[in-house]
Every structure is written in C-alpha cells, then in structure tokens.
C-alpha cells in the first residue's frame, strides 16, 4: 500500500534576475525581471511502506525540491501529494509527527550545545514520554555509536560525527517515513559506510520507509531497492536498482598512481586520462573484472596507490538518453 503518492506534481520558481552593473541594478528596483525555473515538471510516483527508494540526479535536477515538497516546506505549483494520509503543505504540523528528515548540508542540532540538549528538546516537541524517549535514545545511541559524542558541543564534531547525530535526531520519534537529502555528502568512506549500514538496518528492522537523494552511486547500489532518476525536473528512470545496475552502472574508473612512467598498451578498458605518474582507466565490469586490470598493472610497474570510482551520475544519465534515443 502506498505511503507516499505524488500525482502530476510540478514546482515552478520565479527568480528575480540581477543584471550586472550599477545602472541595471538601479533600474531593476523599478522594473524587476523574473525568470521562471521549472524545478519539477509533472512527476508521478508512489512509495510503498517499508520501501527504500533512491531519488537521484545531477545538480539542479529537482530531487531536493521533490523531498522538500514531501516534507511540506515547499508548496507544489500543480498536482497533489499525499504522505501518510496528509497533504504535506496544508497539514505540515500533523505530518511532522510521522516523518523525519535530514538535509546533508544543513543542521538541525543546536550548534553551541551538545547533541543531548537537542534530543531532550525534540522529546518534548514530539510529546515522547520519558521512558519511551530514554529507551529510544539508548537504542539509537548504540546503533549509531555516538555515546562519547553526546556531551560535546555540536560545533566541535566532525562532519561524519555530526551526520550520525543528525540522523539520531530525526529518528527519535520513530518516524514512519524518513526523507534524506544527500545524507552522505562530504563524508569520508568510513563515515559513509557507517551511515549506510545503519540506514539499511533501520529499514530492515523497523520497516521505516526511506526516500534518499544522493549524488553518490555507491549509496544507491548499497541501499536502495528501487531508484528514480530525475533530470531537468522529469523522471527518466523508475525501476529496480538491480535493473539500473545491470543496464547502466557497469563502468568503474580505476586510477593508478605510479612511481615510474609506464610505456605500455592497456588491453582493458579505455584510458581516459594519462600523466607520467597517474593513469585513469574506464573499465566495463561486464567485460572485464577489476582484479584482472589490477594484476595487469602490478605486473607491469610499481603501483604506489589505487583508487576505484563509480562513473559520474551525469555519464549514466547521458548513457540512458543515448539508449532511449537509439530505441526511438
């Protein structure tokens, strides 16, 4: 049964244009010009209870706007949204008891105080009784491993530590729906891994419906069972993540940092960047195992370091377009 339902939703922003120069700025006081930005255009989808959905797309694609319409912060310009039986914009306060949200680039914790103080405040805001609050907090503190962080002012926490504390704040009231806008942005690999593991665990054990936006293909591969790709405000892909992986996420970028310049021809993949001490190769994992590429490199030179990246999301979307146009 859908817990989230969007029907023909659009969001248009009217943004004031600012011309360069003093004269233009002065005249804009009397005759302001506005430009229309269609952030989201006629999108429809639903999310079932307990589902883990990834909403991905490049910068400015409309994914964060969609999340903000789901929380009720932004009012859709057209269409209808239903989250847990509520109209988010008109019934924002009632809906707040059932949803939790984290925005990776912003903080909900009181900056100069330890996270514990914010948690105590949220317990009051969400009318949690003392016993239930204590039990829930103990569980989340253990799960996210933030025990030693509870008494440190938020401003002194690292980004990864802060993000774990943010997630705890959003989960205190046991929300049915968790909306995460770039929760892993700026985190290092270990911090990302920690956040992903806990989110997966919560989704599986508490059946929390999770909608996550991300730029990171790794988030999607590890977490989401279903993926929606938004580009220029419209949905370009809505299917199982497995399907996306099989069809489109097949390229890995392998970067070798070498001690001596190599003069060899690479039999695998495509060399996309080469300097005397660094080589980047795009490898199609359907055709070649990463291990083969690595052993070839190690047999031919002294490798100082290896990095493996996912293909940028923009490339995946471009590949999708090529495929769609080819089919036409």
């Amino acid at each position: 049964m859908p817990i989230i339902q969007l029907t023909h939703v659009s969001k248009i922003f009217h943004v004031k244009q600012k011309q360069a120069g003093f004269g233009a700025s002065f005249w804009s006081l009397f005759k302001p010009r506005y430009t229309t930005i269609r952030a989201v255009e006629d999108i429809s989808f639903s999310v079932d209870q307990g589902e883990f959905l990834a909403l991905i797309g490049p910068n400015g694609a409309g994914k964060s706007t969609t999340i903000k319409m789901l929380t009720g912060i932004l009012m859709p310009s057209a269409g209808t949204i239903d989250v847990y039986g509520y109209n988010p914009f008109d019934q924002r306060q009632q809906l707040a008891y059932h949803i939790g949200a984290v925005y990776g680039s912003r903080s909900q914790l009181w900056y100069h105080l330890p996270a514990q103080d914010t948690y105590d405040l949220f317990a009051r805001l969400y009318d949690l009784d003392d016993k239930a609050y204590k039990e829930r907090l103990d569980f989340l503190v253990t799960t996210f491993d933030i025990g030693p962080l509870l008494t440190i002012p938020v401003r002194k926490l690292s980004l990864g530590q802060r993000m774990r504390c943010e997630l705890v704040a959003s989960l205190l009231h046991k929300p049915k729906v968790l909306l995460l806008d770039e929760p892993t942005i700026g985190l290092d690999l270990i911090a990302k891994q920690q956040v992903r593991t806990v989110l997966k665990q919560l989704n599986e054990t508490e059946h929390t419906t999770v909608v996550l936006t991300s730029h990171d293909v790794g988030d999607i591969e590890m977490l989401a069972r279903r993926t929606i790709i938004i580009n220029h405000g419209t949905i370009v892909f809505d299917n199982a993540t497995e399907q996306l992986k099989r069809q489109f996420i097949t390229t890995k970028i392998v970067e070798f940092i070498i001690e001596q310049p190599l003069d060899i021809t690479w039999p695998f993949g495509t060399v996309i960047e080469q300097t005397p001490y660094c080589i980047k190769i795009a490898v199609d994992t359907k055709k070649t195992a990463i291990a083969d590429v690595m052993s070839f490199a190690m047999n031919h030179g002294h490798i100082k370091d290896i990095n493996i990246y996912d293909e940028p999301l923009e490339n995946i979307i471009a590949a999708m377009y090529r495929m769609t146009q080819g089919a036409r």
Partner: peptide
C-alpha cells in the same frame, strides 16, 4: 536566506 527554515518549518509546532 540559507534555507535553514527547512528544518524549522517541519516540526510539530507553530
């Protein structure tokens, strides 16, 4: 201006 209002608006209070 910073968008911090996104957190402030989605709480169960006025």
């Amino acid at each position: 201006k910073t968008g911090a209002i996104s957190y402030a608006l989605q709480r169960p209070y006025n």
